[in-house]
Design a protein around this nucleic acid. Structure first.
Lengths: 263, 263
DNA sequence: CCGTCTTTGTGCACACGTTCACAAAGACAT
DNA sequence: ATGTCTTTGTGAACGTGTGCACAAAGACGG
């Protein structure tokens, strides 16, 4: 099939660690706020606090970009805003298409955060013919049939998928075939893309499930005991796999979950 | 100011690595699909492909939960669905409130993925009095004044913030004070919360900026040369900090950006 | 009951990310 | 000029995450 990679292989693009890249927008936001208040310089300590990170981490992050600070003083806010913007590629214009103009797609189209930083909604695309022409956020919705033409005409390289899960892969394939090389996916599916195409996903459901995990843990630690059964355990495990759980490694006292396996 | 932690300290909750927890929902989704197709068992290889991860990683992830597979056969789909659901705390009901019923809040309220997995939208809350009583996704919007009462009455421990950035911290503080211990933040701000409260953020703007970074890199690698200036460089750096950029390490020729998009 | 064949579970090595702690750079006062 | 004081930039130690590769578990056929 040769479908290609699904996850970016953490390319460590040209020396700047992925983790650092992911934090740059955070710093940029904090710096922009300072800039608007006409604050001339800021120390790593202050900026780190504003961005919600450790100051050593922030300094190391900046060190990957070059040495833009002045010892004993801190960082020049304006200069740093510029350097980070440039590094992130925000000094240029990025036309973006949003595919799938349902509730979410419309919300995204209306989101102000787009234009603020070099991103421009070039087109809204939906498969529903009855939506064609209707303006959403001041932009007329176009039909999926014209997807390829729209991508090409506008030189779009970033696509946002806000379709139902079932349509996502197909839309993705068409976007990629038309020349899109970066995709932000809001549909709850794993997208398969060829090498060289970046996919980032935003998944409400996954985030909530992660929160639920931690929430359950908190509850379990506070109120132990509580042998109440939750739901019916499913059938039975295949054969004889109902043992073990820590295999005598770490896990000090016991080796059981807060209140597991009823039957 | 003693405001408290901003980022979860990667607590390694009871032996299950954060990275694993973040993947469990992915596995669960793939397994649910298999279950609906009445597939009885699945190998780590197949399931890994469906979830878009490496099979060794998947096996290691499952090993943290216990030994639920059968060698030579694979994993029992139904059983595994149950085990993961239980581990994630999805066998119980999680009432959730959404604060800020604008475009995004409404889209979230309408999102079907909520109910599907143990999450129930217990209430919609907005600060705009004219919205009060209006039904969104079949649920009447309530006013912010009643936030505390709503949290308490429904035993809500998970809150979703979809307000403008300016209101987010204040809403967050009220949620936490009322007993919420997990927050999913869609507002583009760094939230400050006391210890023991989990915050996860979803930030469209940050995701796009990360994509733009990689996109710029790709463009720069394909079309080198191109000494075109991008935008006006800001004033001048503070003092004498206009040197270096790789400090004679990698980065062969020059030390400037690959060469940005002409126009 | 034994041999073969598939697939799990995991030890190990490596890559990546985070944090500490401190030398060196520079501002600023005297 | 020289000294002091602040704050950066980074070496080094540590922790977390990933992936290979393989022994052992068990299914299944004869």
């Amino acid at each position: 099939m040769a479908t290609g990679r699904t996850h970016r292989p953490a390319t460590r693009s040209r020396g700047i660690p992925e983790a650092t890249v992911a934090r740059l927008p955070l710093y940029l936001r904090a710096l922009t706020a300072l800039s608007e208040r006409s604050v001339p310089t800021v120390s790593s300590e202050e900026l780190a606090a504003a961005a919600g990170v450790n100051s050593a981490k922030l300094r190391k992050d900046f060190s990957y970009l070059g040495s833009y600070g002045t010892r004993g003083v801190g960082y020049d806010v304006e200069y740093l805003v510029y350097q980070i913007s440039r590094e992130l590629g925000l000094t240029q214009d990025w036309p973006v298409v949003i595919v799938g103009i349902g509730n979410l797609g419309a919300a995204l189209a209306n989101y102000g955060g787009f234009a603020s930083r070099g991103f421009r909604v070039a087109a809204l695309i939906d498969a529903d013919p009855s939506m064609a022409g209707k303006p959403v956020a001041g932009i007329p919705v176009q039909h999926t049939d014209d997807l390829e033409a729209i991508i090409e005409e506008n030189g779009v390289s970033i696509g946002v998928i806000a379709t139902p899960a079932g349509a996502a892969q197909q839309v993705c394939d068409r976007l990629v075939a038309a020349g899109v090389t970066s995709i932000l996916n809001f549909a709850p599916t794993v997208l398969s893309v060829p090498e060289g195409v970046d996919v980032r996903k935003v998944d409400l459901s996954i985030e909530l499930q992660i929160l639920a995990f931690h929430e359950q843990r908190k509850a379990g630690e506070e109120a132990p005991g509580e042998g109440g059964a939750d739901t019916t355990p499913p059938a039975a495990p295949p054969a004889a796999a109902v043992r073990r759980r820590g295999e005598g490694s770490e896990q000090g006292p016991d080796g059981d979950v807060p209140a597991v396996m009823p039957a």
